[in-house]
Structure formats: C-alpha cells, structure tokens
Computed example of a mutant assay.
Amino acid sequence: MFNKFFQNTRKPIGYGGSLMVNMMNIGHKSLSKWGHSHISPGLDANVLDIGCGGGANLLLFLKRCPKGKVCGIDYSPVSVKHSQKKNRRYIEEGRCEVKLGDVSKLPYGDNIFDFATAFETIYFWPNLEEAFKQVYRVLKSGGYFMICNEISDSENDQWSQRINGMHVYSADTLYPLLQRIGFVNLKKDIIKNGKGMCIIAQKS
C-alpha cells in the first residue's frame, strides 16, 4: 500500500494523487525557494513550468513577474486541476494558463519563453534528450532553463527502487546532453550528500 501510494509522485491519479499533490506543494517548498534564489526573472518575463504539479511554483513566478505570463504543463489531470484551482485568480486575469500535456511534445510555438523550469520532475521524463530539445525550442534566444532536483546522487537515492520509471541523474550526466542540444553557460549548485541540485542552462 505504501509503495502504491508513492507511485503518485510520478503521475498523481485519483484521491491518492490529490493527497500527493498537496504534500508536494508543502514538502517541496524549501527546495523551490532554494531553486528560485538562483534566477532573477524580469517583471515581464514569460515563464513555463514543466511538470507543474500542484501549482505552487506557478504562484511564485506570478508574484515575481507581475507583468509577464506564467504557463504550467503537466501530464497528470489531477495535477492540472490542482494547479488551475490554486492559480484561478491569475488564470481569470489572463496572466496564467495550465495545460494537460507532455514534455516530449510541448504545445507551444518556438521562441516563446524567457525561462523554463523543471522542479523535481526530470526523474520521470522518458527521453531526456528529446525533452531537452523541446525545452530549447520553446525558449527565446538567451532564455534560461533551470532544473532543480532534491536527489542527484544515486548513492543516496532511496526512491528509484520504489517508484516505477524513476531515474536519478547527476550533473555529470546532464551536462553533456544539454550541451549537445546547444545550451551554453551551464552553471550548477549542489548541496552536499546529493540533497539538492540546481542547474541553469542558457539557450544560445
């Protein structure tokens, strides 16, 4: 039962998924704050949060970018519903939208966003290289992609054996993929013992 419930970290479904989404909004708060400290989006920045979960990061960006637009995408209908509810005011104002979709085929045109973010989600992307190509495509020239994960060290990973389809990636694994696609000016910040990793990459 315990392991079944935690499958909802990959794709929240049903009542258990609703509980998980609420738990993630609370449990990831400190990691999110740490990740946000690495970037300085403009007041009018257009932002895409991929795997937006319960919508907490969307709300943070909406407050940081009061003249911009913030979009979220998730492949879980439960997550989309929660994100839409949490950010209803801004959706009604036209400053936010949340879509059901897949990172392997982002439903946006080219050169749209100043920032794209992925908080605690690339663990579950089935084809990282193709996903990163999609992120690169929707970013404006000079735009930034931020990856923020709590787990980046396989030796300290206690979850991938419990959660189907979860893969832990180190910065050494991600850097070559990002560079091959065309990202430049890569920077990383890693908390000791694999308790946090933030990577910033810029579209050339």
Rank of each mutant, 00 (worst) to 15 (best):
W34K: 11
G35M: 04
S40H: 15
P41H: 07
D44S: 08
L48E: 01
L48W: 01
D49C: 06
D49H: 07
I50K: 03
C52N: 00
C52S: 03
L60C: 12
F61N: 08
F61D: 06
L62M: 01
R64G: 03
R64F: 08
P66H: 09
K67R: 13
V70A: 14
C71K: 15
G72T: 10
G72R: 06
I73V: 11
I73P: 04
I73E: 03
D74Q: 04
S76P: 05
S76T: 04
V78P: 00
V78G: 03
S79G: 09
K81L: 10
K81R: 12
R88D: 06
R89E: 13
R89K: 15
Y90P: 00
Y90V: 02
I91Q: 02
I91T: 01
I91P: 00
G94V: 01
G94C: 00
G94Y: 00
C96A: 00
E97Y: 09
E97V: 11
V98L: 07
V98C: 04
V98G: 06
D102P: 12
K105M: 06
Y108D: 07
Y108L: 11
D110G: 10
N111D: 13
N111V: 12
F113P: 03
D114N: 14
D114Q: 11
F115Y: 05
T117S: 07
T117V: 11
F119A: 11
T121A: 09
T121I: 10
T121K: 07
I122V: 08
F124W: 09
W125N: 07
P126T: 09
P126Q: 07
P126C: 08
E129W: 13
A131C: 07
Y136H: 14
R137M: 09
V138E: 06
K140M: 08
K140D: 06
S141K: 15
G143W: 05
G143Y: 04
G143Q: 03
Y144N: 12
F145T: 00
N149C: 12
E150N: 08
S152N: 12
D153L: 05
S154L: 14
S154N: 14
E155A: 13
E155T: 13
N156A: 09
N156M: 13
W159T: 09
W159P: 03
